[in-house]
Each structure stands twice: as structure tokens, then as C-alpha cells.
Design a protein around this nucleic acid. Structure first.
Lengths: 254, 254
DNA sequence: ATTGACATTGACGTAACGTAAAGGTGTAAA
DNA sequence: TTTACACCTTTACGTTACGTCAATGTCAAT
């Protein structure tokens, strides 16, 4: 329950220098100083450090973090929820960069072409600017149930909209898959289109995408009775066919 | 096809100061200097800047980046593939932090307890150290199909291992769910445990997790015939029950 | 001819620590 | 008891990747 610098540093994965610096700038003072002048941290400091690291992860500057967490009207839970949103945004951006890398590989291998604009997709981050505004002034004024509710509502509307598209996509996967299955070749153009549609379909519920995960799911379609039963219901062998098509599509064959 | 500092900066989402600095330290020199002393960048420089930004995204220092991309034995495609791996790792870490935020919210709302250790899950990043080693020396020596293959193999083994645990978890979800269904209350402790197990189970195939996605999937369990048929097979109403349990678990009820 | 948006090269500033240096503290083993 | 060794302390200078002036030149349009 009580930690010295080193113990806390180890726990939190930061350096002891960082903790001393945080003490120096007054963002995280130890609970007490013992008789030999050692810094002793307690439960409250552990929690506070966690808060600091959450903000740091988002690229918020330390003096701004200080402003935020020392503010009397600081609502921890609301802040954490806002945090979640930001982290999800960040992940979306990461996914963009990963897609960019994938495309760049394809380009270097001569399979596709990329515009100069495309080459920098995912790097532009207005995220920091937004943080400035959000955390700078608005947070203390605007934070209330209204804002949270509004953003939730917006999300619901979005998912509602997406859901319609999602269902249409699902049908389209099935149709294309059926047509492709008739050709018997999982490498055929139609089968690859089905795999691509399937990827798009996935992205609606996954929010992210990786070739590995897609391929893993493809394998599961055969190994998991739920999926297998569904796909084989219409035509026996369809599950395996879809798996093979996806494995080829993702380049994860063998 | 030709860019001045500002144009390129805009394209890539960096500042003009950054481009001048990159020129100064010799990491990205313009293709030519025009008659008025302006820096003019061409296609090759665009590609090189993209490379630099990929590395920067991973936290590699500029002088190290310089070493890497000016190395004669630098294999662009191999580097990009290595890159992909790193970015996926980074996303995994982000997912850890998001899960951490979720848990912290639950804790602050008094729903669960967290150990001090848990509070810092996701922050510890040996990633940078690893980058140091990987990109520092080994890259130029070791880069070859062997390394790539080896890492792929490792990934396959890992998923193999995970798969066993994954199946065990799946069974455990079903068992707990059945027991919980008997109580009839989706908010019951047992039902919430089932929802938690379901989350864990999901994480094996999703690799990431968000409450929204989980809740979305829960709704899909009722709306999508495949899942509904599976869960209702044993007991009619099970799909709805699981959905409700998950909606409560994720705090997305209504 | 002037305006305004571009460009240039210095040169100093900064954030968040890293990295010694020089020394005190606590305890376990020789 | 001394010695070793792993802790802790403060002070202070170094570092990275730019940000931010300042002073000045260029270009196109009005």
C-alpha cells in the first residue's frame, strides 16, 4: 500500500526520474516524506499517477494535465469516458496507418498504385488540436450529462445508420459467395470479391481490421459449429470455400 | 509532382520547420534548390518522407532513422512488413489501455475493484527498447526471409496455443450462461460472469475490445439468425438473455 | 508600387525527461 | 564492526525534435 519511488516507478512503468520530476513540477507530490527524506506514495498518489498517464498517453502536456486534475470541478468519470473516446479515435488512426502500410507494401510489390495524398493517410492528426480545445476551456464549462448524452445519441444514430448498410452488405456477401461457390474456385475473381465484401462487412462490427484476424476468423468458420452450420446450411462445403477464399484474399494461405 | 516546403508539409501533415530541420540534419534533402533558393521536393522525397514518418510513428529517433534508410542493404519491403508487426503490437497495447479505462470507470462507479498492478496495465512499453535492439544493429544483419518466417511461425504457434484456451473459454461461456439462464435474471451475478467470460472469449478473436462493439454484437445475437439459432437451440430465449446480460455488463442498457 | 502570401537563414526557447556527480541510508553478510 | 550493496537524496547540465520569433528576400496580383 505504501511505495518508495522505485517501487512505484516499477509498478507504473515509468522512471524514478519521472516521479521526481512530477514532484518538482507539483503534479504528483508524495503522500509524505519519511525521516530520511525518502518520498513515500500511498493509494491516492497511485490513482493520481494513473490519471496522469492516461492523459499523457493522449499527448496532453503536463502543465495542462496539472490544470485539469487539480481543478475542483474535475469530474473523474466524465473525464475517463471522454478518454475512452479519444483512445478509440487514436486506434482508428492507427488502423489507418496500418492500412497505409499494407497499401504501400502492395505498391512496392507493384500490385497497386498510390497517390501522393494516399501515402500520408493516417499521419495527419488534428487530435492534438482538438485536445487543446476540449481540455483547455470547454471541459470545465461544458461537462455535464447533456454532452455525454448527446455524444451517446450521436453514436446510436450512427450505429443505426450503419446497421442498415451492414445488413445490405451481409446480403451482398451471401449472394456473391453463392455465385462464387458455383465456380468452385476460391481464387476466382468472384470469390475474391466475396472475401472483400466480407472484410467490409466485418469492419462494421469490428471497427478495426487485420489480415491475421480475418484469416483467423476464416478458420473459425470451419472449426466453429455455429458458423459452419450457417454457411453449410445452403450448400455443404460453403464454409470451407469461404475460408479458402479469405485465406487467399489475406495472403495467409498455408 | 513537385512540391515546395509548404505544399509538402501540407500533404504530409507536418510543419515547414520540420522539413527544414530534416534538411538540416540530412535526413531528407530536397531534390533541388531553385534559382531563388527555394527547396523543391520530388517523387523520391515524398516516398522518403513517408518512410520517415512510418518510423517516427514507432518512436524511432531521427538519427537512427537516418542510419536505417541510408543503409545500402536496406530492404524496403521487409522493413514495411516488420513495421506492420510493430503497429499491430502498438494497437494491442492501445487496446490494453482502453480495457484499463473501462475497468477504471467500473471501479470509480463502484462496480468492481482493481489491484494497483492492474491500474497500470498497458502503460509499460518495452516496445521502444525492442525497437532499439531490432532497428539498432540487427536489422541490417538479420533481415531476410528467415526472420520474417520465424516471426510468422511464432505467430502461428501462438494462435495455436490460444486456440485451445479459446475453446475452453467458449465452453465455459456456454456453461455459465446456461446456469445463469436458470436464474432468469440477466443482472444476476452469474449472468454478469457469463458476460465477462464472453468478453474474454471475444478478445481471442477480436484482438481488441470496446464496450460499444460488445454491445453491438449482443444486439446482433438476437437480430442475426445465425447466432440466434445457435443460442436458442438449447433454450428459447437464451439469445435475448445473453444480449441483456451483455448490455447490462457493458453499461449500454437503453 | 504596394500588398500579402510565400520563401530563406539564423538563433534562442521548450518539454520532459536522461544522465552523471556527490553524497546520505538501511540492512545483510563477512 | 566493517563492508558491501542497493537503495535514497539534491544539484545540474545534456538531449531531442522541433516551436517561435526576427530579419530579410521572392513572387503574383492588384
Amino acid at each position: 500500500m505504501e511505495y518508495t519511488v522505485q517501487k512505484l516507478a516499477e509498478l507504473a512503468g515509468v522512471s524514478t526520474r519521472t516521479l521526481r520530476y512530477y514532484d518538482e513540477i507539483g503534479i504528483l507530490k508524495p503522500a509524505r516524506i519519511n525521516s530520511s527524506g525518502y518520498r513515500i506514495y500511498g493509494r491516492a498518489e497511485v490513482d493520481r499517477l494513473q490519471q496522469i498517464l492516461f492523459y499523457r498517453e493522449l499527448g496532453v502536456k503536463l502543465d495542462k494535465i496539472k490544470d485539469i486534475i487539480t481543478s475542483s470541478s474535475f469530474d473523474e468519470i466524465a473525464a475517463l469516458k471522454e478518454h475512452r473516446e479519444k483512445l478509440l479515435e487514436k486506434r482508428t488512426q492507427l488502423d489507418l496507418i496500418i492500412t497505409n502500410v499494407d497499401k504501400t507494401i502492395a505498391m512496392k510489390e507493384g500490385r497497386i498504385k498510390m497517390s501522393d495524398k494516399e501515402k500520408f493517410k493516417g499521419f495527419k492528426q488534428k487530435l492534438i488540436e482538438e485536445n487543446e480545445r476540449k481540455y483547455g476551456k470547454e471541459i470545465r464549462d461544458k461537462y455535464g450529462d447533456e454532452v455525454v448524452e448527446q455524444s451517446n445519441k450521436k453514436f446510436k444514430e450512427m450505429t443505426q445508420e450503419q446497421y442498415a448498410e451492414f445488413e445490405r452488405l451481409g446480403e451482398s456477401v451471401n449472394k456473391t459467395l453463392k455465385a462464387a461457390f458455383a465456380t468452385g474456385d476460391p481464387a476466382s475473381e468472384l470469390a475474391q470479391k466475396a472475401a472483400d465484401l466480407h472484410r467490409q462487412w466485418l469492419c462494421y462490427t469490428w471497427g478495426n481490421y487485420s489480415k491475421e484476424a480475418h484469416a483467423g476468423l476464416a478458420k473459425m468458420y470451419v472449426e466453429d459449429e455455429r458458423f459452419k452450420a450457417y454457411y453449410d446450411k445452403e450448400q455443404p462445403g460453403m464454409a470451407e470455400f469461404l475460408r479458402d477464399a479469405i485465406l487467399i484474399y489475406t495472403g495467409m494461405k498455408d
